[in-house]
Amino acid sequence: MKIAFPTEGDSMNSNLCEHFGRAPKFLILNTENDSHRLIDNTHNTKMPSGAGIKTAEMIANDGVTHVVAKNCGPKAKEVLELSSIKVVLTDAETLEQAKDAVTG
């Protein structure tokens, strides 16, 4: 699985961001080899509207299989689901805890 987490930090111990479209970055976790990398989202956070959609577009083009978030707007969710990405909502605090929502 390739899981995308919206965050303001840079590790699995960081907190899950409240937002999806206006999250400053995403941590992409590859569960096969436990590696992760960060992708910047600041260019989308600056948009007056449609930030969620543009962020979803970026995530979808990255080859991600799952998104775990606290919130995700309906338009962004639609884009992700059209790309066969599973969207999981959670109220977990950290990315490590949020990961459990997907891996179970």
Binding site: G50, I53, K54, E57, N61
Partner: peptide, 10 residues
């Protein structure tokens, strides 16, 4: 597109 009306998925 400034409004997110057009998006490109792959």
């Amino acid at each position: 597109c400034q409004f997110g009306a057009l998006i490109s998925i792959k």
